[in-house]
């Protein structure tokens, strides 16, 4: 009951902020439309819809980090959080209460991205459903990044880190806009050490039916998600104590 009540509150807080909806749903779809329009006017296959959609879905998830980070950072600096700290809520109740409402929002965001892609010509197949499932660990990863940032930074810093830095990192280092091999060298090595390109490649493998290629990429995403979620729980617990001093 405790977690459900808190999760419901967090859903309402996020969904009632219209900017969240505009950026979370609108921006990835606009990018998808824009790049598809570019593709229609060039002869090379740069932004093919089946290649682009998993990337845009992962890029869209970076906004979920922004929502979760902003919500926690704002809560942490408010007297409302003091009320919750005095209540019988435990750290695990807080983390689950923040994570649970964001997961269906993230999945819904991926689904809407795929619906837009189908309208732009993506072939309907069972692989779309498999891709959505394969992208769920990436959704958890981005939620965890938001939880971690919101636990450490204030809301202005979260706006900068998750709103500007993370969206750009996801955009450039995920291989969504261009093939990482085109740049190569250190850039490619760094990108491959981070989870973003692996999330996109796992999605692309699922969508193209290369199922044997999924796990080698997904293991990076799951590994990062577990570690960052653990760090977020630790950071939240520590900051909860120091915020009250």
């Amino acid at each position: 009951m405790r977690i459900a009540s808190f999760a419901l509150r967090n859903s309402k807080e996020i969904l009632r902020d219209k900017l969240n909806l505009v950026f979370g749903l609108g921006f990835p779809i606009i990018v998808l439309l824009l790049l598809s329009a570019i593709q229609a006017n060039i002869s090379v296959q740069l932004f093919a819809i089946d290649h682009l959609t998993p990337g845009i879905s992962v890029f869209g998830l970076s906004f979920i980090s922004l929502f979760s980070g902003m919500l926690i950072a704002k809560d942490r600096t408010s007297s409302f959080m003091l009320r919750l700290y005095i209540s019988p809520m435990k750290s695990s109740d807080f983390i689950l209460g923040y994570t649970l409402p964001l997961l269906p929002m993230a999945v819904m965001q991926i689904i809407i991205c795929f619906i837009a892609a189908i309208a732009l010509g993506l072939t309907i197949s069972i692989n779309i459903l498999i891709t959505i499932i394969v992208l769920i660990p990436a959704a958890v990863l981005f939620i965890a990044i938001g939880l971690l940032c919101g636990s450490i930074f204030n809301d202005k810093q979260v706006g900068g880190i998750c709103g500007a830095l993370l969206t750009n990192l996801t955009a450039w280092l995920s291989g969504t806009w261009f093939d990482l091999s085109l740049v190569g060298g250190t850039f490619k090595s760094i990108a491959e050490l981070l989870p973003f390109s692996h999330a996109v490649d796992a999605g692309r493998a699922a969508l193209s039916g290369n199922f044997n290629m999924i796990f080698s990429h997904l293991v990076w995403v799951i590994g990062y998600a577990v570690v960052i979620l653990g760090l977020a729980i630790y950071a939240f617990t520590i900051k909860a104590k120091s915020d009250n001093k």
């Binding site: 405790r2 808190f6 509150r9 309402k12 807080e13 005095i86 209540s87």
Partner: peptide, 28 residues
Amino acid sequence: INVSPQETAVAPNLTVEENLQLIAGIYG
């Protein structure tokens, strides 16, 4: 125990009724 902090401690985007329901739920 419970507290009414110095600064008004409410969830800003929830209605009055929802704020009260939230706290009732958190206390089980």
